[in-house]
Amino acid sequence: MATVVWFVASACAIASALAVIVQRNPFIAAIALLGNLASLATLYLLLQSDFVAAAQIIVYAGAVMVMFLFVIAYVGPHAEVPDERRHTWQLIAACVAAGAILVEIALAVGRSTLDSAASVEDSFGSPQAVGEVFLTRYVGAFELVSLLLLVAAIAGVVLGSGPRPSRVVDERQRRVQEARDLAASRAGDDR
């Protein structure tokens, strides 16, 4: 049973990840990423990591994806690069890099001796168990992440509320220049 669920979830995860990088429309790519996140949450459940699976759905599929879809809607048709031609050497280099990582992982997995799972009690992966470790041994990391999220929130506000769009600024500068030219020519006439 677990093998069947693992196979289906893994196939969905890989297929949706391929859809993310192949789709030209960013909106559909974001929806495919949503499927990828859900499949990974299923795999986390298979690994008895219930709390991480719940956090994955709430944080990623909820908050992060809403932000993505909002920005895709804000940017609109500009999000698509019209002529996505690329150099052949880029394609070859990317495939070589990906293939090297795959071969490396396959070799490492083939030689590993970690294939028998540790026996764990039923509370493994529950919010209590994870929270206890998180807030005692890793409390420093917890505080650092909260600080990082604060900095990121400030950065989001700063980046989102920059100067006016350049077209508006250009228009204003043009009017100021026109007024100056007019004043200069009038001053010339008076003389």
Partner: peptide, 14 residues
């Protein structure tokens, strides 16, 4: 797969 996407796609969103 993600690495190939990062290296090849040109739209910053993707």
């Amino acid at each position: 797969i993600g690495l190939v996407g990062v290296l090849l796609r040109r739209s910053p969103l993707v």
